[in-house]
Design a protein around this nucleic acid. Sequence first.
DNA 1: CGATATATTGACTCAACTCAACCACAGTGG
DNA 2: CCACTGTGGTTGAGTTGAGTCAATATATCG
Lengths: 241, 241
Amino acid sequence: MSDICLPLGLDKADICKLETIVTSTAVKHSGDIVLRQGDPFRKVYAVKSGMAKSYRLDQAGTEYIQSFHLPGELFGLDAIYAKRYGFTVEVLDTSVLCEMDFDELQTLCATLPSLQKQLFNLFSRDLYRSHVSPTDHFDQTAEQKLSGFIHNLLTRYKARGHRGLELHLPMSRRDIANHLGLAPETISRLLKRFQQKGVLAINNRLVEIVDPSKLEAMVHCHALESSGKMDPQVSSAKSAK
Amino acid sequence: MSDICLPLGLDKADICKLETIVTSTAVKHSGDIVLRQGDPFRKVYAVKSGMAKSYRLDQAGTEYIQSFHLPGELFGLDAIYAKRYGFTVEVLDTSVLCEMDFDELQTLCATLPSLQKQLFNLFSRDLYRSHVSPTDHFDQTAEQKLSGFIHNLLTRYKARGHRGLELHLPMSRRDIANHLGLAPETISRLLKRFQQKGVLAINNRLVEIVDPSKLEAMVHCHALESSGKMDPQVSSAKSAK
DNA sequence: CGATATATTGACTCAACTCAACCACAGTGG
DNA sequence: CCACTGTGGTTGAGTTGAGTCAATATATCG
């Protein structure tokens, strides 16, 4: 149950208390909107299964997909400060979400030091991730962005006990492109290239990681000389400006 | 004093308690290292004056400048989870920093609900910022990145009561470029262009915002037809992929 | 005041974008 | 059951913004 939401060291009694503030646990379907950018902040959410995306519209109406929320992850915490949600969250796949009232969570924290600690940890992890992963995006090539994205998803699934090397990507190519700041066409071309290089096997929205070490290498280095196939052009190293 | 560190609603008695955990308040100079990536996490820091930058070296030894810390801002919170600092923090200007022990801060939080609330707010604000500002970076043009960067700094200074339209940028062009994922040459060229357009007046590391509304426009729109000067080429709108 | 680091400018290149066509599948309705 | 239409995905051709490399100018500092 709540070990999915907040996995780390809480004893059973504490988990019970935590469960009392879970407002609802609902099944949602692809396209359902969980909350809207601008809505007053009240609840935080945990993904139990499936996936959701959060995106933001700027004043020009342009959509920016900020992140994808995987099972075991919390969202909504970034709205505490502004008291309104900064992002719209939309479910991508048939998913189970549980929601809890943040005021109650906060009050509960005051009585349960371990929960407070737990929340600080969670905040810190999210902060750390969002500080580090831009690094993955940064000035890097499109190849690195995409391989980094896939690697990132795999890592997050693994952290939740997911074994195996298949990934289901319920989002469209368009969504991936938007999220990474690339054109959808580029995503297509790259996935094809990754397949040719023997790194991935793509089947529509199902991705199998054929060679994890090659994937790893692509994330960090700037070029992967295709050992198995064509295209011996070495993309020039950019790196540190 | 501590109203600089944690400005929002704490009463005087609470602030006194908070001050008891401030380990030290030291003057540092340009180039001084406050903490190193990989060091065990123990303290969090607040900038009282001056500026610091935090950067990260990846396994290839490439430097990524993650952020600049302005007066009134806290850093180190992202290390709670990993128990080690993920970034090296280096002072850019003659600066005053105060440091406090996080364990004590956490303990104090358990007794002071308002402080706990305060910290959640702070976390949330940082999270929100790091979620939104990538938006500013994203797929956008170099012009938008740089104008967004300057606008961002200005906003943060304003939030701390800074009036006036001058900015001192104690970091090198190289640092700015690295932070934004651009080449230093591009920063030079853009600053020059901004000056020609009558948006900024650049004097070495001192920047005066000549026309704030134009700056604002550049951040959001993709092109600013130079009303005052040459170069009537309209850079084609990219926006939503 | 020379020496070293930082900043600017110019010329050329390339990765990723745009635009546009095409393919494939999933509904829907006749 | 099949044509029709829409959406998502792929492929191709041509363009361009920002990068690289290299040279020059300007600061900063012992």
